[in-house]
Nucleic acid binder design. Sequence first.
DNA 1: GTTGGCACTCAGAAGCGACGAGTGCTAATC
DNA 2: GATTAGCACTCGTCGCTTCTGAGTGCCAAC
Lengths: 350, 350
Amino acid sequence: MELDDRKKRVLQAIVDDYVATNEPVGSKTLIERHNFQVSSATLRNDMAELERLGFIEKPHTSAGRIPSDLGYREYVDSLMKIDTLTQKEQQEIESNISGTVDEAAELIRSATHTLSEATGFISLSMSPRLQKSFLKQIKILMIEPGKALVVLVLSAGVVKDKIVRIPNFVTDEQMMKISGAIEKNLTGKPLDEITLVTVETAAKDTEIPSPILRQVLYEAYTAIKQADQLSIYLEGEHKMLAFPDFSSMGRARDLLGTLSDSGMVAGYVNEMENQAQVTGKKDSYMIRIGQEITLEGLDDCSFITATYNMGDTVSGNIGVIGPKRMDYSRVISKMDFVKKKLNEELKKLT
Amino acid sequence: MELDDRKKRVLQAIVDDYVATNEPVGSKTLIERHNFQVSSATLRNDMAELERLGFIEKPHTSAGRIPSDLGYREYVDSLMKIDTLTQKEQQEIESNISGTVDEAAELIRSATHTLSEATGFISLSMSPRLQKSFLKQIKILMIEPGKALVVLVLSAGVVKDKIVRIPNFVTDEQMMKISGAIEKNLTGKPLDEITLVTVETAAKDTEIPSPILRQVLYEAYTAIKQADQLSIYLEGEHKMLAFPDFSSMGRARDLLGTLSDSGMVAGYVNEMENQAQVTGKKDSYMIRIGQEITLEGLDDCSFITATYNMGDTVSGNIGVIGPKRMDYSRVISKMDFVKKKLNEELKKLT
DNA sequence: GTTGGCACTCAGAAGCGACGAGTGCTAATC
DNA sequence: GATTAGCACTCGTCGCTTCTGAGTGCCAAC
């Protein structure tokens, strides 16, 4: 199963060539463009072997070979070398991300935008996983009779709010009492330790009649729970249409159709992240190639994600979706750099 | 320039047929499918006349006719009759929109979603135009030294917040004073009457040293101004790929490319709305067809918008973008119904 | 104004052969 | 045992021609 050196070079050359030209590559072109010191017949033997092992395949009998998913996998895992960005590329990215932005969400969004611009592919970001973040402030403001606004300030500078319905006759004053009690008792608690019970005990000595209290607390609780819902942001979907890989319309439709279901994509990214945690990821990025991706219509794509951090406990993902026939080395190095810059800027915010 | 009755019928039949089949329609098919009581030769004469007047055109010499933009325009303006929705269609829409939603933004979003589902096209909504809404509450909360959260509650139940940077040494107490003063003096004022000067005079008797005050007020002011920025929400872009009208990939790319620039689309919708105001719209909807749309890549689309209302002074738009070869009657009636339901639900929120 | 008839147009499908890039296999060579 | 030259074979692509048929414009007759 171990490939000898030349076979590795052959596979690498095939991937490189196919990525660059989008044409199946044959033994002759291989010699011409990648100066091997052997004859085409030898390469043909090697290629037959590589095909037997499942690394490459031919679209039809009289064409050259293209990498299979397994071939890309091998390439990504052990053949490619990550290249470094030029000064100019770095500057381009830096100037786009570092800014005078005060909200983390906006910063993440601009990093996502930059990522799509830099790679030419679809980029995405997941909102931070906030279960581990803690409550810094919680205020409930009366808006009008029957309506209140719950404002949460979480560690890592994230702010969430939600309008909730409350009993009509709750007074401003009562609300302030409840708000104060909750804040006093819950501040500093991680989100995932807050339960309906915690909230209720937090406010139990406010002397507000219990039925009223219960409803308000319930609403406050749902507002808190809602705060750590994952959301995903996608950008640049239309860029895929420019690639010949998706010129068949059917494929393009399947791809964009699947991506339009953002919940599904978010779920998948989350799953990727969890798997990486379990298997003990060694790399700073995760890659899924072609059929490895279990989402419909992404068989011709690769999915690359990385993790950003906000403080010690909170993290989220950014990522790229492109045709699996992509220049992995460049994409990864760009994503890595974006991630690095994003992390730096996020740090500045806290 | 006035068309006689039969010519009107011919044009109408051509549009109907072409919309249904996506095939150029010839004189013979016309007779077969739309039981005219005259011969094909007569229709050919009529069609030649309609072509001379610019209502229809032929893709090439030996094909049938298709409606031109002008033809669609005539159809929409005076030929079609708006049909009514079936009980079932109405229920479908109703059940999707009416819900237990407490925030207007969410309600509008769900209406937009419903609209895309019901029509099978791209739907869109503009955030409400809030310049005319008034400030119901404004609070500034300290988050940590140097950082505060401005929370605005506007009439019509809209809530906005923004994190702002403030001088490090501003105390919690000072902030409360400022916040109170602003709130006391600005509550009830329409957004578009609030200027930096108004804000500054509102807080002038707080006894806070002026340089500090100025910066805080400036930030509060920008937060207010930022609240009435228009934003647009688009849904169902990928659905366009299913239509043969966009099977040429180049067109599809142009379309989705343009739509991905949401600022541009928002600007266009806004412009449409303004024009309708000026010309004194008589209909409850606005239509732009094909080349009438000044956005690149939308030549094969039609753009239909309507206005929703939140209270007396605040309004926004919902709309549909589909192939210009669409069943206008159905789309308009569906949009109209969605708008109606949306307005009803928005009313309930206030 | 309407109709039947007719010559004409032209896109699209179908069929066909040449081309050529690429393959696998075999036998000779290093 | 690995490498190479040689060769017969495969098969998708390109360009060409031909055929078909839906549709047209126009004219003479009703």
